[in-house]
Each structure stands twice: as structure tokens, then as C-alpha cells.
Nucleic acid binder design. Structure first.
Lengths: 110, 110
DNA sequence: AATTTATATCGTAATATTGCAATATTAAAG
DNA sequence: CTTTAATATTGCAATATTACGATATAAATT
């Protein structure tokens, strides 16, 4: 016990859960927002933007990368990180779809 | 150590992280999708829809409720759960905004 | 009142996450 | 080749999450 029972859910459900889970930490939200703000891949200085130690930031970056939300490529001495637009679009569509369905809802209980 | 350092991030970042974290489990994604599918508040049978034991489902429902994603009201013998449309709209706007910003991006590295 | 039904809570084991100091790695600069 | 700079990995302590059996609660049914 203790581990998530992913095998009982659909691939899509697991995919969305993986993405939202990866975003489920303020530091990782901050990283994503920073990458969007600078409007370019960023080589370095992500650590200086966050109130966390370097190994911690590195770990958060790794999780975002594992989930596919960011891409990183070695750029000489440092690493170049940037948002994967396709994945963000997937989330945007997912929540857009939910909102559409909810506004079409006929029933008005609660 | 071990606890998230929420105090170092903005309220908005913490709010979005709380919502995405709550959705960061396939069972909770499945619950939300089911509530949308049935197009009404649901009194009962959420447990039967999921491949998890009743206390586990109850716990997941509690987390969704704590995050504000669903609302629940006592309906006689059972409980009536439904999606909070406002909160879903907030997520939809957040990711819509990100997608807009990303598509306006001039830089094409990575 | 006793039983059934639906849901919540408690307790607990297994596992995962968070955070960081210490250390490793690797490329650029001197 | 040594040093510096940027990032990753390791190891570990603190804490959180996941899952469920057992039990509690509370309204509906008999």
C-alpha cells in the first residue's frame, strides 16, 4: 500500500494526473511562470529566482522534465530549459473542455 | 524538512499549486470526470465507479473538497457532490493564459 | 427498535515527496 | 592543467500521501 494504483485508470487519466501532479507545487508553478515570463529558454539563473537551495531547484526541474512539461538541452556550461508548448496546450484543451461541458450543464443543483 | 515552503511563494502560485496538486491523482481525475459525465450532482455511487475501497474514495473526495474543486452537501442518507464551476473556470483561464503567452512567444529556441 | 445503506473517521503500513548538505560532474576561463 | 561556474546526484531526515480494514455515524427502511 501507499503507491498510486495507476493500472486501474485510463492512460488519459494517468497522463493528466501526471501533468497536474508535476504542477502541484508552488516552486514548480514559479519555475513555469518564470520560463514564460522571460519569453525564451533560460540558461542558468533559475536557481537565483527561487527561494530554495540549488539541489532542491534541480530536483524540481527534473520532475517538470520527467512529466514532459519542460525540455532541457545542454548549452555548453549550463543547461537551456524551456516550456513544452504542446503539453501546455494539452492542459489548456483539457480544462477548456471541462469548462465547456460545465457551462452546457442543464442541471442546477448545489 | 519535508514540508512544502509555501510561505516563499505568492498567494496565486500557492492557489494554483493547491488546485493542480488536488488533481494530481488519477482517482481524483476520474472522480471529476465522472461528476462532469453524469451532468448533475451525484448522490452515492461514486464508490462503485472507482476501483478503490470506500475509505480511499472518501479520502480522495475530501481532498477535492478541501481544495475547493467540488462541493458536497448532505442529502438525506447520502451526500450530494458536484463540481465547483468557478474553480474549474479559474484553471481554464490560467492555462488559457499560458497558452496565449506561449503562442505569442517570439523566441524559437529548443 | 433493529437493520440496512451510505458515508466518514481512525489507525496504521507502505511508499512518495520535500529540502538540503555534501559531493560529483562537466565545460569554460584563466 | 588548475580553477571557477553551473548543474546534477547522493544520502538522509522530516513530512506527506496512498490505501484499506475496522469502526463510527446517521438517515432510511423494515
Amino acid at each position: 500500500m501507499g503507491a498510486t494504483k495507476t493500472e486501474h485508470f485510463t492512460d488519459k487519466q494517468n497522463t493528466i494526473a501526471t501533468l497536474t501532479k508535476a504542477l502541484g507545487h508552488p516552486a514548480r508553478i514559479a519555475i513555469v511562470e518564470y520560463l514564460i515570463k522571460v519569453d525564451t529558454c533560460i540558461c542558468g539563473d533559475i536557481v537565483n529566482e527561487l527561494p530554495l537551495a540549488q539541489p532542491t531547484v534541480s530536483q524540481h526541474l527534473k520532475e517538470l522534465k520527467n512529466a514532459g512539461l519542460i525540455k532541457g538541452s545542454i548549452e555548453g556550461n549550463s543547461i537551456c530549459y524551456c516550456i513544452d508548448e504542446k503539453i501546455m496546450e494539452k492542459l489548456q484543451k483539457y480544462f477548456g473542455n471541462i469548462s465547456t461541458k460545465l457551462s452546457n450543464k442543464k442541471n442546477t443543483c448545489c
